[in-house]
Design a protein around this nucleic acid. Sequence first.
DNA 1: TCGCCTGAACTTGCATACTAGTGTGCCACG
DNA 2: CGTGGCACACTAGTATGCAAGTTCAGGCGA
Lengths: 233, 233
Amino acid sequence: MPATVTPSATPASDRPSPRQHGVYDALRAAVLCGDMRPGEGISETRVAARFGVSRTPVREAFRRLADEGLLRIVPQVGTFVAPIQLSAVADSQFIRETLECRTVRLAAERAGEADVAALAGLMDRQRAAMASDRHEEFFTLDEAMHAELIRIAGRPAVWDLLVTVKAQLDRVRVLSLHSEGWATMILTQHERIVDRVAARDAAGAEDAMREHLRTVFAAVDDIAQANSHFFEK
Amino acid sequence: MPATVTPSATPASDRPSPRQHGVYDALRAAVLCGDMRPGEGISETRVAARFGVSRTPVREAFRRLADEGLLRIVPQVGTFVAPIQLSAVADSQFIRETLECRTVRLAAERAGEADVAALAGLMDRQRAAMASDRHEEFFTLDEAMHAELIRIAGRPAVWDLLVTVKAQLDRVRVLSLHSEGWATMILTQHERIVDRVAARDAAGAEDAMREHLRTVFAAVDDIAQANSHFFEK
DNA sequence: TCGCCTGAACTTGCATACTAGTGTGCCACG
DNA sequence: CGTGGCACACTAGTATGCAAGTTCAGGCGA
C-alpha cells in the first residue's frame, strides 16, 4: 500500500456489512430492551457459539458496547451487563437536554415550509399510531421527530452523538409501564414543540422541549425505586 | 462464571492495563499532534511490528480510533489517518460550545470559595507558563481549567465526553502557529472567564466562554486554507 | 507507444490455539 | 462438623494462520 496517499474512491458504504455489526446490533438491542438484565454475566465464547461466529467479531462488539457503558469487561474474570447508574442517567439527561434545547431553538429559527410539513406529517403518524395502540411504531416516530428537529437545525451529527448518549436513558425508559395517560401527555408535548417551531417561536420551542425532556426524566427516580436491583449507587 | 450475579468487588481500575491501551494512546497522540498526517496509510501488520505486539491489540486500537473518527478503515484495502472534515470540526465546535456555555453558567452559580481558589491557582500557573514560554505546559493547564470549570458545575462526565468530541478541533489547533499575540489573547480570555465565575456572574461567564471558544474556532478557516491538503470537503 | 491483462504482494476479516490469571467448589484435615 | 487449601474449569488477552478481496506493477500484444 502506498503511504501518504489517500484512497481514491471506494466508499466504505458499498462494502458488505461485517459480521461484528450483526452481533453488536443484536446485543445492544438486547441490553436496551431489557432482555439481558443488568448484572447478568455473558462470555465471548458463549455468545460466539450462539451467533455461530468466532470470538473475534464478538470481542469487537463487546468492546464497543463497553465503550458505550452498556457492558463492563473485567479482564480475566468476565463480561457483565452494566448496572444502570443513576449518575450516568442524570448525565445523559443533562447532555441531551442541553443539546436538544439549543437545536430546537435553531430549528424554530431556520425551519422552512417543507420542514414544517415534514414535522406535521410525523405528528399525524404519531396520532394514528397511538390511536391504534401501536406503541412500537409510536416510539419509532418519537425518535424520528427528535432526529428531524435536529436535522432542521442543521446539526445532524448531534443526533448521531445523542443516539449513544441516550442509551442510558433508554434503558430506564423501557422499564416504565407506559400508562395510558403517559403516552397522551407525550403526544401533547410533541404537538406543542412542533407548534412552537412552526410559529418560529424559538424561546417557546426551547421551553416546550425542556418540559418534555424533564417529564420523561422525572419518572426515573420512581422507576429506580421500583427496580432497585437493576441500579447501582 | 455464575450468571445473573453482579461481580462483587474487583474494580476494573486495579487491573493491569492491557497492551492495546498503550498502542491506542500512542497512535491517538500521533494523529492529534500531527506526527501521522491525514491521508497517510498505516497497516495493522506494520504497527504491530513497530510496537512488538501481535495484530490483535493493534486491531482493537484501530477500531477505537476509527470510532472516534481519527482513522478510516477500508476493508480489504487498508487503514488511513482520516482527513480533517470541516463539517466534523464545525460539529465539534457546536457541541463543545453548547455544553461548555451551559456548564460554565452552572459553575458560576455553584462555585464555592475553594473552587474559586483552585481556578485562581490554575491561572497563576498559566501566567507563569506563558511568561517562560512553556507552551506545552500552558496547553495542559488550558485543558485543566476547562475540566475544572465543568467539575465545579457538577458534571464531570461532560468533560469525558468532550475529550472525545474535541479531538477534531484539536487536530486543527496543532496546525496553527501559535503567534505571540494569540497566546496572550487566550490567557486574557481565561482570566475574564474565571473573573466572571468568581463574581458569580452566570450570564457574564457564559458570554466570556462563548467568545473564548469562538476565537479559537474563528481561526479554523484560515488554517484550513493554509493546509488544504489535510482537509476534506 | 499505448492499452490490456495477469499475477504477485499487500490489505483487513475471521477462525483458532495458546497464555496468564481468577473464582469457585470440593476434598482433606483438624 | 467446620475450615483451610488445592485443583479445576472458565475467563479475557494475545498470537498466529487462513481466506477473500484489492491494488499496482510489469510484461505482452497490437
